[in-house]
Each structure stands twice: as C-alpha cells, then as structure tokens.
C-alpha cells in the first residue's frame, strides 16, 4: 500500500526520482537514513525536502531489490545507526538512471524552448 504521488508539488519528488537521488548520495559515501535526508536538503540548497514517509520505504525497496546494503554502525555522536551503502548492482542502476534522467531533461528543455 505505498503512496505514489504522480503530480509532485514544488520540492516534492516522484518515487523514481527519489530512488535516484538516494543512490547518488550513497555513491559518494555510506550514510544512515537521517544523514541522507539532510544531505539531499543541503546540496539542493533547501529546495528538495525529503519526507521521511517516502524515504524509509524507498530505502527498504532499494534494499530488497539488492541495490543497497545496510549494516549497523556507530554515528558521529556515538549512537547506533543503520548505514546504507551502494552495491555493484546499485552503481549500475545509478548510471542507468542518470543517463535516462539526462535524456529526459534534455528532451523537456528542447520542447520548452521551441514552444514559446
């Protein structure tokens, strides 16, 4: 019973896009759920605010699809946290998703420029 928003408002992300961003964040370093949300917010300049309600189901999904792995570790404030990291399959998926995204945005840009 997952919620899939089809028409996102400003700052909200479609499910597939969220997956891609999470994969990208994890490609740079392993991180826990809270850290991923923070990183996305920071890097996007506070524009993209990830809802926890979407983040954790997405993380589970990626985990069950074998794209990320998780294990318990200690965070910087000495707290037990579950760290996620990319698998090889995850890296491959990230590449595919990025290529697809770039194609998509280029196509949208072309349309937006011609139709004035």
């Amino acid at each position: 019973m997952g919620r899939k928003k089809q028409t996102p408002g400003p700052g909200e992300l479609v499910q597939g896009t969220l997956d891609m961003l999470v994969l990208k964040v994890l490609s740079l370093e392993a991180m826990h759920g809270w850290g991923i949300a923070q990183r996305i917010r920071q890097v996007s300049g506070e524009v993209l605010r990830v809802e926890e309600g979407s983040l954790y189901p997405a993380l589970r999904r990626l985990e069950l699809d074998g794209l990320v792995e998780a294990e318990w570790g200690t965070s910087d404030n000495n707290r037990r946290a579950r760290y996620y990291q990319l698998t090889r399959a995850g890296r491959r998926r990230l590449t595919d998703e990025r290529d697809h995204w770039q194609e998509l945005t280029a196509a949208i840009a072309r349309v937006m420029e011609t139709v004035r």
Binding site: R3, G53, P57, R60
Partner: peptide
C-alpha cells in the same frame, strides 16, 4: 510525519 503510516509503508514493502 505520521510514524504509524511510515511504519506501515515500510512493512508494506
């Protein structure tokens, strides 16, 4: 947000 709903959503996966 609603912790119960999120827990359910995670479980739903």
């Amino acid at each position: 947000g609603n912790a119960t709903t999120v827990t359910e959503d995670v479980r739903a996966e």
